[in-house]
Design a protein around this nucleic acid. Structure first.
Lengths: 336, 336
DNA sequence: CAATAAATTGATATCGTTGTCAAAGTATCT
DNA sequence: AGATACTTTGACAACGATATCAATTTATTG
């Protein structure tokens, strides 16, 4: 029926083991036999049977993406990036949704990896910030690669974004536009990005000699509702800021709605700035100024990072920090 | 190392074939041996090795989701639904992005299925509308289940939504709210949903004795930009409608932006209605009236449909049409 | 109660690879 | 030239399940 390693070995006049050596790029095969085998491989259109390879070598050629309640567009971007890396290397992507509050997360993931012989994991926030969980994976010798970790464990490969710098830079830009009274809405405190973004904001204020006003600094959890509530809180004050910087776009949209309901004109009376450049950012009016991270690229790199760990074929990829881009749209008003 | 079928057979005092029979729920196993085997299985914590099963039985326990450039939240919802069905049945989900304009789509998907021994496919629009492609799959005896097909092929299982009815009903609601002058923006003409939604609109107009005005009916392709352009076209007319119904939320947001830029007040001067209930629908201001389809549920059903095809264990699931929900939010103004 | 049919069970081959280990071939060194 | 080391190759076992088919047990029949 379909072409097997036996057919190739017969055609090339070598043993099946030699064919195996060639297709796995093992050392100690003479150039001439290698060529001979490869000719037969292409001639017959041979493709190794994944199940047989997997059974014998304990590798599945599958990597899994672990996520916990991410926003949908982030998830789609991450997947897109990973899939690009997979396509080039013949790996397959399997999805695994988890709950970071689940006590048994370590054991259930370990079980999943063992059951399906998953070759490695790609871990996204907030799971990437759970050091205990990562330690458990280490103990089981499970390979993984992390997107946006907090503690940059030297031991495991990661990709990160410059959340701090981007937030600092955006804040500086807001100040440069003439704003002196600036509010901030924090993200979910489980995500390490939240504190990075907040610290970037605070330090930019300090460095530019702008006073901090803690009435204008609100807690949020990345949800639209939490942004809306933060807006309600701020707009009930006597003095309101001239700009509010939110840790993500959904919260920024929530603030926008709450401002609208108080008849506060955007951006004339209030500038609103988000983070992430989600699809919503372009679709609201006025369109949202925001920070765009190269999520798809980052995810692709994370996947490459992981795959090169257990794949002798390609040269090792190294951990990398990616730069974000400041996007100024209509929601940020120039005051001077 | 890990528990195999041999260990179980030894523990239960039966042959490995009998163990295999039990775990595959085959007939002709006496109750007493079945019980004996199951006791050993749980006692030893035996789990069949997927690779070995796959190698011997030519099944991979993996199903693939085929998609082509869907909007990100739709994709996430579909995945979520499929994953729920997978979790319960021990299947795994693999992602496969395609391009419906690719000439070689049939052959590349067939190759993918054969390479990875994918057990079946779940096919989303617009791929679900490509009859030739589906015929090619049929010829290769590849199992699939379709989400929202145009031609309801009796031969293959599908889930569908009542796009026509939902659109009719929403239009009737708009009329009920007192609107007599209603515009419409069509979706991408590759999607069968586009014409269903349009026909529902037109028939509702006719049935309520409302005149069609073709200046107010614009082509779109589901993108924000196409909605924006449709808005620009409509708003450059002498007479503008009092409500515009767009075939999805992104286009509705585009219309909203274009209206805002012409200083048309929403919803006082113009009502805008979308379709899909995407995250954006709630995050714009005023929040968008829209039609919500139970995408996650539909996808879950599609997955069950597929899995029960090749899985003797569970009873067959049947094709089903799902009902949409009309959601009235701030963007639709009551005129009377 | 023997003869036959039906249900249950097991010994062993098999799926298509990679792993082990020894044999054969080449190169290098006294 | 012979001894030694290194490179290249292949025969066959192994991975852990399912498939085949014959053997055994149990039920049914005349």
């Amino acid at each position: 029926m379909s072409v097997t390693i036996k057919d190739v070995s017969k055609d090339a006049g070598v043993s099946i083991k030699t064919v195996s050596r060639v297709i796995n790029n093992e050392e100690n095969v003479s150039e001439s036999t290698k060529e001979k085998v490869l000719r037969s491989v292409t001639k017959l259109g041979f493709k190794p049977n994944k199940s047989a390879q997997s059974l014998r070598s304990k590798r599945s050629y599958m990597i899994a993406l672990l996520y916990d309640n991410p926003n949908k567009s982030y998830l789609a971007d991450v997947q897109g990036g990973i899939l690009q890396a997979c396509k080039r290397t013949g790996y397959n992507l399997v999805l695994q949704e988890c709950n970071h509050e689940d006590e048994s997360i370590s054991s259930s993931i370990i079980e999943f990896v063992n059951d399906f012989k998953i070759d490695g994991l790609i871990i996204t926030p907030p799971l990437s910030d759970m050091d205990e969980f990562l330690d458990d994976l280490d103990n089981e010798n499970i390979e993984y690669s992390i997107i946006a970790p907090s503690t940059k464990k030297a031991s495991s490969p990661y990709v990160s974004s410059n959340d701090y710098d981007a937030s600092y830079e955006m804040t500086a830009k807001i100040i440069e536009y003439g704003h002196q009274q600036i509010g901030f809405v924090k993200g979910h405190n489980m995500h390490s990005a939240s504190s990075l973004r907040f610290n970037g904001f605070i330090n930019a204020l300090d460095d530019h000699g702008i006073e901090r006003n803690f009435d204008w600094i609100q807690d949020g959890d990345f949800s639209f509702e939490s942004g809306f509530n933060a807006g309600e809180n701020i707009f009930s004050l006597k003095n309101i800021p001239s700009a509010i910087f939110a840790s993500n776009d959904s919260m920024a949209a929530g603030i926008m709605k709450s401002a609208r309901m108080k008849n506060i004109n955007i951006p004339d009376q209030l500038s609103i700035i988000g983070f992430d450049d989600s699809p919503t950012a372009q679709q609201v009016w006025p369109s949202m100024s925001t920070v765009k991270q190269p999520v798809e690229e980052m995810a692709m790199h994370a996947a490459k990072l992981l795959i090169t760990q257990f794949d002798g074929l390609t040269e090792k990829t190294v951990s990398k920090e990616f730069k974000s881009e400041i996007i100024i749209r209509e929601s940020l008003q120039q005051l001077i």
